[in-house]
Amino acid sequence: MIASSVASSVASVGWGDVFDFRDYGALLELVHNSLYAGALLGLVGGLVGVLVMARDLPFAVHGTSELSFAGGAAALLLGVDVVLGSLVGSVLAAVLFGVLGNRAREHNSAVGVLMPFGLGLGVLFLALYEGRAANKFGLLTGQIVAVDDPQLVSLAVISAVVLLALLVLWRPLLFASLDPELAAARGVPVRLLSPVFMLVLGLAVAMSVQVVGALLVLALLVTPAAAALRVSSSPYVVPLLSVLFAVVAVVGGTLLALGSTVPISPYVTTVSFLLYLGCRLVARLRRPAQRPGEPQRPRAVEAL
């Protein structure tokens, strides 16, 4: 009986209940800040994601997002700026992960210990918060349509800091990520770069949590770079493709959601996933002899 009730409910929901583009032009005028924020996040997330994949740290992205979520939830409970709280949580996670381990295995152990702690704290803070339920939900799944001028300025400042750090440190970071032994032999400060990169990652995660929420950060900081690595191994093409895919996912997801009753986050993650599937298909057609599941890595060492 339950199954038939669910089936009838699903059948009663038509596409007209999900998509409605009649007021699309008027709605588009209201989301300029959201589109700017999405473009900034795509630029930063696409670049940082390349280094995340090169350093084999997707798990650390998720762990950082959980502590960023805890910081945002604490700020919400205390009545202070949520962006600041998320930023503090992300920076704290970056410092802890950078100190507790320099190798991928050590990072994973540290993340596995701290991630449930951060998630538990965030859930506790939200349970104590008595304000609007939409604020709680937004920390988990994002609220890009609610980007106001002060928040956009905050995102722009964080983006500028991250981009400046990447501009200065890109070559040594990529070198140390792909071949740490050779990089150390050539005088690159590999051990120092690890906490520095984790700090940059923390800033990028703090941005992402404000847009897509703590649960969906991987869709912007991992999936676009993973897709780009499927179709290219060039140290120059991969970052460009990763940024392009991330911007398309965020901005495209926002534009699609304007004519829908469904929240933005599912569109962002779906577009990102479809781009990844498309790149896998292209890789399979171009390299039929390549084993499935074997990711490409940019041949950047020779170019450094």
Rank of each mutant, 00 (worst) to 15 (best):
S109L: 13
V111H: 00
M115H: 00
P116G: 02
F117S: 05
F117C: 07
F117W: 01
L121K: 00
L121F: 02
G122H: 02
V123W: 02
L124R: 00
F125H: 04
L126G: 01
L126D: 01
A127T: 08
A127S: 11
Y129L: 04
R132F: 11
R132T: 08
A134R: 12
F137D: 15
G138A: 15
L139H: 09
T141F: 13
G142E: 11
Q143V: 08
V145N: 13
V145F: 14
V145L: 15
A146W: 03
A146H: 05
V147H: 02
V147C: 01
V147P: 00
V147A: 00
D148T: 09
D149W: 07
V153H: 12
S154A: 15
S154L: 08
L155R: 06
V157A: 15
I158E: 01
S159T: 12
S159C: 10
A160L: 15
V162K: 05
L163M: 14
L163C: 08
A165T: 10
A165P: 08
L166Q: 11
L167F: 14
L167R: 11
L169Y: 07
L169E: 03
W170F: 14
W170L: 06
W170V: 08
R171N: 13
P172M: 07
P172W: 10
L173F: 04
L173P: 00
L174M: 15
L174H: 03
S177P: 01
L178A: 11
D179V: 04
D179Y: 05
D179P: 04
A183N: 08
A184K: 14
R186E: 15
G187F: 10
V188A: 06
P189E: 12
P189L: 10
P195Y: 10
P195F: 11
M198G: 00
L201K: 01
G202P: 04
V205L: 02
V209M: 04
V209H: 02
V211N: 03
V211M: 12
V212F: 07
G213V: 02
G213A: 11
A214I: 03
A214D: 01
L215K: 10
L215R: 08
L215H: 06
L216T: 09
L216Q: 13
V217G: 09
A219T: 13
A219Y: 03
V222S: 01
V222Q: 02
T223R: 05
P224M: 12
P224V: 12
P224Q: 12
P224G: 13
A225L: 12
A226P: 10
L229I: 07
L229M: 15
V231W: 06
V231M: 06
V231F: 06
S232G: 08
S233C: 05
S233R: 14
